[in-house]
Design a protein around this nucleic acid. Structure first.
Lengths: 263, 263
DNA sequence: CGCCTTCTTGAGATGACTCAATGGTGGTGG
DNA sequence: CCACCACCATTGAGTCATCTCAAGAAGGCG
C-alpha cells in the first residue's frame, strides 16, 4: 500500500557565472518573461539567483518544506506530486520547459506539493520572499503569471476529465496523449521530438500514480494499446502509430488542446 | 452512459440600477478586489456591467460557447463542469461566493467549461474583451488574479489527491469535508452555516460526477458514513457528527486546508 | 558479470458498476 | 386540499474491471 520510495536530495549546481544567460534562453518565449523586451530584463537580476543544474532522479523540494525558491524550468522533466498521510502518492502534473514551479497562494508558507526531477534539469531560481514584490512592481509579469496559472488549471481540468468514469484504456490513452500534445507544442525546446514520437522518460510506476491506477494495470493497458496499433511506449520513447485513433480513445481534440494547454 | 440532462438557460436579471453597490458587497473582502481601497474602485465601473441575479438550476454558460462575460460570484453555488464527447460529465469544482468564474488562458476563445447555477445566485459581470486590459492597467488586480488562480489550483490538487487510489468512503468523505471546510471558511457569506453544519445543495448525482462515481455508489457510501456516525447528509443539509473521524477518513488536515484552499 | 530498477505476465479476490425497481419530497394546478 | 408530477434518494442482486499477490524477465550501469 505504502509508497516508501526514498529519493536522494537534488544538488543544485550553478552552471554559469554569467547571470544574463538566463534571460537569453529560448524557453523564454514560453515562460514568465514572454513578451518582455530583452533590454528591459536587466532588472530581473535583482530578483533571481543564478541558473542551476539539477541531476535526474532527485528531489527539488518536498511538500511541507519551507523552501526559499520558486523556479522557471528551462529544460528537463519535473514531476509535481502530493503524498497523503497514508503514504499514497498522487502525481499532480508534469512540468515541462517554460513552466513556472512553486507559485502558490501563500508564498510565505511551506510548499503545497513536492517537485522531483525525472530527468536532469536546468532551472532558474527566484527567492519566494521577493516574488510577490516582483509581481507588484512589474504588472506585466503579474498578468503573465495569472495566465500561466490559468493554463496549468486548464491542464489539470483535462486531467480530471480524463480520469473520470473511464476505462483504463481511455485513461492511459488520455494521459499519454495529453503529454504528447504538450511536448509537441514545445517543439525544439524538447530534444528528440519528431512528428509522431517524443522522448518519454516517465516510468510506468509514475504514470500509475498520475492516473490513480496500479502499475500492473498500466502495463497491461499499454500492451493493449500497442496491440491495437494506437501507440507504442518502450525504452523511454513514445511513438504514436495512429494519432486519430489515439485521440478518439482519449476523447481529446488536438485543436482545442493547443488552445487550452499550450500557450 | 449518457448524461443527457438538458438544463434551462439561465436568465440574467439586473437587480440594481446602482452599479456601485457591486463594490460594497461584503464578499469583496475575499474576491478580486480585496485590498483595493473603496475610493479607488470607481474606475472598475468602466470594466463591468451590472449586478445580476441568476435563477437556480440554470446554465450560466456552456463549454465551447463564445460567452462575452466573466463573473465574480457574490452569492449562491455554481457548478463548473466539462463534458466529454461521449457525454460523460465531470464536475471540476464548485464555485462559492468570492470566486471568480471564467478567467482562462485565452480570453478571446470559447469557454473551456460549463457553469451551472445549483442555487439562485448573484453575480457581477465583466466583459471578457476588456478583462486583459483591466489587469494590465491595474497590476494589483493581476497579482490578485494570479493568487486566486493559485488557490483554485490548490483546491483542484486536493481533489486530484482525494480521488486517487482510494476507497469510495474515503473519496466521498474527502469531497464532502473539502466543501465543508470551504464553506466554513466563508463564514457569514454563506447563510445557514453553524459550527458543525452547512447548507449543502449538491445532489448525489452531481456529487457522483464530481467524484467520478455512480450515484448509487455515492448513496450507499453516504449511508455507511452516516451509520458510522461520521456525518449526515439529508434534506440538502450537511451535519458533521464527528469531525475528527471525518478528517481522518478523508486524510485531510483542517489547518493546512485553511492555508491552501481558503484565502 | 552482478545488481538494481523497471517491465511483464498469471490467477484469484473484491469493490464499484449495472440494471431494475421502489420510496420519498416538494412543487403545481385543478 | 388533494392529486399528480418531476426529481431525487434508496435498496437489491449479479457482473465485471481493476486491484492484489506472486513470480520472473529484461534492460541499464557500475
Amino acid at each position: 500500500m505504502e509508497n516508501k520510495t526514498r529519493h536522494k536530495r537534488g544538488k543544485l549546481i550553478a552552471t554559469s557565472a554569467e547571470p544574463t544567460r538566463c534571460t537569453q534562453c529560448p524557453v523564454r518565449a514560453r515562460a514568465l518573461f514572454q513578451g518582455v523586451p530583452l533590454d528591459q530584463l536587466e532588472w530581473t537580476q535583482q530578483y533571481r539567483t543564478n541558473q542551476f543544474n539539477l541531476e535526474g532522479r532527485s528531489e527539488l523540494f518536498m511538500e511541507g518544506e519551507d523552501h526559499p525558491f520558486a523556479y522557471t524550468l528551462f529544460s528537463g522533466w519535473i514531476m509535481l506530486s502530493s503524498t497523503a498521510p497514508s503514504g499514497r502518492r498522487r502525481v499532480l502534473r508534469f512540468a515541462l520547459p517554460g513552466d513556472f514551479i512553486g507559485f502558490q497562494t501563500r508564498l510565505d508558507r511551506p510548499m503545497t506539493y513536492s517537485a522531483y526531477a525525472i530527468t536532469p534539469s536546468r532551472l532558474c531560481a527566484f527567492p519566494r520572499e521577493t516574488l510577490q514584490q516582483m509581481l507588484t512592481e512589474r504588472s506585466e509579469l503579474a498578468t503573465r503569471m495569472a495566465t500561466l496559472s490559468a493554463r496549468d488549471m486548464a491542464f489539470m481540468q483535462q486531467l480530471l476529465v480524463a480520469n473520470g468514469q473511464r476505462s483504463a484504456k481511455e485513461r492511459v490513452g488520455a494521459m499519454v496523449m495529453l503529454i504528447f500534445a504538450q511536448v509537441q507544442g514545445l517543439g525544439d525546446l524538447v530534444p528528440g521530438t519528431t512528428e509522431d514520437s517524443i522522448d518519454f522518460p516517465i516510468s510506468q510506476e509514475i504514470l500509475a500514480d498520475a492516473l490513480a491506477m496500479k502499475p500492473e494495470t498500466v502495463n497491461r493497458t499499454l500492451r493493449e494499446l500497442r496491440e491495437d496499433g494506437v501507440f507504442e511506449l518502450k525504452q523511454r520513447r513514445l511513438t504514436v502509430i495512429d494519432r486519430e485513433q489515439a485521440l478518439t480513445i482519449a476523447e481529446l481534440d488536438f485543436d482545442s488542446l493547443k488552445e487550452q494547454v499550450l500557450l
